[in-house]
Simulated assay, not measured.
Amino acid sequence: MTDNDSHGLDDFRDWPEEGRVFPASSANIQVLDGPHPFCLSDADEIAANWQREVTANPALFDGQMVFHRQLRVSGGAIEGEAHVVPYSAFLWWRRKADRRGGVHLFCYPVLVSADGALIAVTMGSHTANPGQVYFAAGSLEPVDIVDGRCDMEENMRREVREETGLDLLTCRSDAGFHAVRLDRTIALCKLYYFEETAEQIVASIEAHMEVAEDDEIAGAVIIRSADPSAYRYNAAMLPVIDWYFATVRT
């Protein structure tokens, strides 16, 4: 890895402090050809860890995802480069204590009901995060790449549609994004406002679960406060719900 590659990845000196939600006018991620350097440097560890992962959870699937080589903040915009990697490489990176070698950006659609609540989901028992509560979301995948760059909003629409049956094209949304950094992971957020109440949205999600082809989610939850003990939250949820209830819903 060159010095240029490491700038903005290893020290985050140009980023707002960890855990603070900040506005991001845009997100421009170029997907490069060829293997991610992390996949080459940690190939043996990735293979060994994958065997441990599938032994513990045989339902895991080693698909493909977008994993970032470096990310920068420039003039309020997030920019960077990434590669398509096997999911097994990401799982090993996530297990590492220092998480050197890469950085993970994922899209986080924040669903807001007409009565001001947030709607999240509980992940199914066979997923990589069983029982955790977070917004319907997933890592960027090859299908989200358009002309060599990641389409963030299409990723959000696809993930929400697949997991909940909801259509984000029917919602009003804020311009631009917000983002938060936690332990070399960037959650790229966008607020989507529904005309239905929280109870109506949850009923719609439950109806979708009855006909969905898989059981990726175990249910939907209504969030009406920033109480961190209300649910078994994924770590990325906590700064987002704090920010929403403190500054957005006033």
Rank of each mutant, 00 (worst) to 15 (best):
R69V: 01
R69N: 09
R69S: 09
R69W: 06
Q70V: 10
Q70Y: 11
Q70F: 12
Q70D: 12
L71N: 02
L71V: 00
L71R: 00
L71H: 01
R72M: 05
R72Q: 07
R72D: 07
V73T: 04
V73F: 03
V73I: 06
V73C: 07
V73R: 07
V73P: 01
V73L: 10
S74N: 09
G75D: 05
G75T: 00
G75I: 00
G75W: 00
G75M: 01
G76S: 04
G76R: 06
A77L: 07
A77C: 13
A77F: 07
A77K: 12
I78G: 05
I78Y: 04
I78R: 00
I78S: 02
E79V: 12
E79R: 13
E79Y: 08
G80M: 02
G80P: 04
G80W: 05
E81G: 08
E81H: 09
A82P: 07
A82N: 04
A82Q: 03
H83N: 06
H83W: 04
H83V: 00
H83S: 01
V84K: 00
V84L: 02
V85Q: 02
V85P: 09
V85M: 03
V85G: 08
P86Q: 05
P86V: 03
P86T: 02
P86A: 04
P86C: 05
Y87M: 11
Y87T: 09
Y87E: 09
Y87D: 10
S88P: 06
S88M: 04
S88E: 05
S88H: 06
A89Q: 06
A89P: 09
A89E: 08
A89L: 07
F90T: 05
L91H: 11
L91F: 11
L91E: 13
L91M: 14
W92K: 15
W92F: 15
W93P: 11
W93R: 10
W93V: 09
W93L: 12
R94M: 13
R94C: 12
R94G: 15
R94F: 13
R94I: 07
R94E: 15
R95T: 13
R95H: 15
R95I: 09
R95E: 15
R95C: 13
K96W: 11
K96R: 15
K96A: 15
A97L: 11
A97H: 12
A97R: 14
A97D: 12
A97G: 11
A97W: 10
A97V: 12
A97N: 12
D98E: 14
R99N: 09
R99C: 09
R100M: 14
R100P: 14
R100C: 13
R100F: 14
R100D: 15
R100V: 13
R100A: 15
R100Q: 15
R100Y: 14
G101W: 03
G101P: 05
G101M: 01
G102C: 08
V103A: 07
V103Y: 04
V103Q: 07
